[in-house]
Amino acid sequence: MKKAIIAAGAAMLIVSVPAYAQKHKKDAPTALELQALQSRDVEASKDIVFGAVMSVLQDAGYRIQSADKDTGLITGISSTKSKLTYNLLTGFGKSKKSPIVSAYVEQRGPGITNVRLSFVMAKMKGTIYSSGLQDEEPIYDPVTYTSAFEKINQAVFIRQNMMDKPAPTPTAATTTN
């Protein structure tokens, strides 16, 4: 009887794992769909766009971990609260999910810069023995990317207008002696 139950359980596992994997594989967009979701062209120089992306990410609560204007790469992580966990083998620890972003800013031509963003949700675990990233889950929500690009476009618009305005000229002030 036990062998029959074990065999039935194994058969169910063998059948269900490929179905589960296939279902989740369908959720992931193709490479072309992912590129369309994650990248936008912006009508501005790389210098302006790079600063705008940095500003938007910081305003969204991301701590910039690295940024290099020459390569166009920016990485950041957002702060989240952790929760206490317990495991029989390792004891007490902490677990949390943190949003991570990477951005690539590339000059495509005169006045055209491409921005590609990648958002992931990282699961972090820590025990007295170790800590660090455990798993990452890509974020494919179009609203997340659309919102980010709208904010980047607004920041670019503001930066361009600030640069287009001439510096204030000193006015002839009357001096009283």
Score class of each variant (00 low, 15 high):
102 S>G: 10
113 T>F: 02
99 P>I: 09
101 V>A: 08
99 P>M: 04
108 R>M: 05
125 K>I: 14
109 G>A: 12
115 V>F: 08
130 S>Y: 13
105 V>I: 11
107 Q>I: 00
93 G>E: 13
107 Q>G: 00
92 F>A: 14
112 I>F: 01
95 S>V: 03
100 I>W: 06
132 G>C: 06
122 A>Y: 03
102 S>N: 14
122 A>C: 01
101 V>K: 05
121 M>C: 05
130 S>L: 06
96 K>N: 03
91 G>I: 11
99 P>E: 07
121 M>Q: 11
111 G>L: 06
91 G>K: 13
112 I>Y: 02
119 F>W: 02
103 A>C: 10
102 S>C: 09
96 K>A: 12
91 G>L: 08
100 I>H: 07
132 G>S: 07
120 V>G: 01
127 T>I: 05
96 K>H: 11
130 S>W: 15
119 F>S: 04
95 S>P: 03
113 T>V: 01
91 G>Y: 11
120 V>Y: 01
103 A>H: 00
119 F>C: 11
124 M>Q: 10
113 T>N: 01
116 R>T: 05
94 K>G: 15
114 N>H: 06
126 G>V: 02
127 T>K: 05
128 I>P: 03
112 I>A: 01
92 F>R: 12
123 K>Q: 10
128 I>K: 14
98 S>Y: 04
118 S>H: 11
99 P>L: 10
97 K>R: 07
123 K>H: 13
